[in-house]
């Protein structure tokens, strides 16, 4: 047991070392870490309450009257809204991918392990879900579910399920044929034990890489949904909704649209850099 923990720690250390050796991945890691810190400590970093409106102070230019990036159309502090927007992006990014990963992995494991009709039914359903462009599926689900943070997570989460299911099923099919699985089975291990103790751990590396990449996609999707007015409800600050408001005041106040987009781009770029690095470190042959 102790040996296992030591081995595990060693493995993590080598992964981190490999990541840090890769310059681009290190930059990605730093960006993601900064965004995570901003999200967690938003109340301390923001200079104003994000929803505080001040009459007569709309569209202030940057660095005026204590407003670092100026104010929006309702006189709300843009910097503080962007800081709080980090929270929404991070929450949706992580929660939606976890949602998709948990359900997708379970479906992929069951389909790949048991095969037969169950596999056919599950994978045909996944094919059907795959036939919708990702963002279109999320948009359609949002029209049914209605606005709100939880609904955004569910909609993007559902759109993420087929990707995870296909990935895991493919892994299971290749792991299932290995000798150790047969041996474990002949020793009397239950299906559940084989799936969760033997097959799932062998799927983890590609799952981590795919999950990281999907987080970037989920963040962009949340921003897109909020941009279309289908995401989080106003007055909640989200990068997408700030961009939506900014679009209407492009000439009067270009910083609203500009900075909200920069936040999305930098965060997504950071996650993609980290994802590339993780792929190279964990599974160089994988092409996600």
């Amino acid at each position: 047991m102790v040996q296992a923990i030591v081995n595990d720690t060693k493995k993590k250390n080598t992964l981190l070392r490999k990541l840090l050796k890769n310059k681009l991945a290190s930059i990605g890691l730093v960006i993601v870490a900064i965004m995570a810190i901003v999200a967690i400590f938003a109340p301390w970093i923001a200079t104003h309450p994000p929803d505080e409106m001040t009459v007569g102070k709309s569209f202030l230019a940057w660095n005026t009257e204590g407003h670092l990036l100026g104010t929006d159309n309702y006189g709300r502090d843009l910097f503080s809204r962007l800081v709080y927007g980090t929270r929404i992006s991070m929450i949706v990014g992580i929660a939606a991918v976890l949602f998709g990963a948990v359900f997708g992995t379970l479906l992929g494991l069951v389909a790949g392990y048991f095969g037969g009709r169950l596999d056919a039914v599950i994978m045909r359903t996944m094919d059907g879900l795959f036939a919708f462009p990702f963002i279109l599926l999320a948009i359609t689900l949002m029209t049914v579910l209605g606005q709100g943070l939880v609904n955004v997570i569910v909609a993007i989460g559902i759109a993420n399920i087929p990707g995870f299911a296909r990935l895991v099923r493919g892994q299971v099919l290749s792991v299932k044929e290995e000798e150790f699985v047969e041996v474990t089975h002949s020793l009397g291990a239950t299906h559940r034990r084989i799936i969760f103790s033997h097959i799932l751990p062998n799927c983890l590396a590609p799952l981590i890489v795919y999950g990281t990449m999907s987080t970037a996609g989920a963040i962009i999707s949340e921003a897109a949904l909020s941009f279309l007015g289908l995401g989080v409800q106003p007055p909640t600050a989200s990068w997408g909704s700030i961009l939506k408001d900014g679009k209407d005041f492009l000439v009067l106040n270009p910083q609203m649209a500009t900075f909200s987009g920069v936040c999305i781009l930098v965060t997504v770029l950071g996650i993609n850099l980290l994802g590339d690095g993780l792929r190279d470190a964990l599974d160089p042959k994988m092409k996600v």
């Binding site: 961009l243 900014g246 500009t258």
Partner: peptide, 17 residues
Amino acid sequence: LVGVSMPIFWLGIMLVL
């Protein structure tokens, strides 16, 4: 790398601007 990370709805707005 920047391209694959681009929120295109934002890029569209910036191109218009």
